[in-house]
């Protein structure tokens, strides 16, 4: 084990392995931006298909080709 650590340190001294970012610094961003991103993905991938937030089919039709080509079930 000690040998492995030494050889790793010797063989890759120039690679800067960064210290982990504290989880508490990542979590708030993950929560808020993650939520916004998921809402955006919902509108691209599913709105006015199985479920609708807005009435009509304009959102569905506008992103229609992207929805099919990105792999989402469309219609």
């Amino acid at each position: 084990m000690a040998e492995a650590v030494v050889s790793a340190a010797v063989s890759a001294p120039s690679v800067a392995v960064p210290a982990p970012l504290p989880v508490r610094a990542v979590l708030p961003w993950a929560f808020f931006v993650g939520l916004l991103a998921l809402i955006a993905l919902y509108f691209v991938g599913a709105e006015q298909g199985a479920t609708s937030v807005f009435a009509g089919t304009d959102v569905h039709e506008w992103v229609h080709d992207g929805r099919h080509l990105l792999g989402f079930p469309c219609h």
Partner: peptide
Amino acid sequence: FGLATGVLVYGVALGGIASLAFSFALGR
């Protein structure tokens, strides 16, 4: 424009999520 909207929103949204996953993964 419709296709561009779908693909770009998908890219930006997943780019954001992936960067957060990166922040968790970095050094771990």
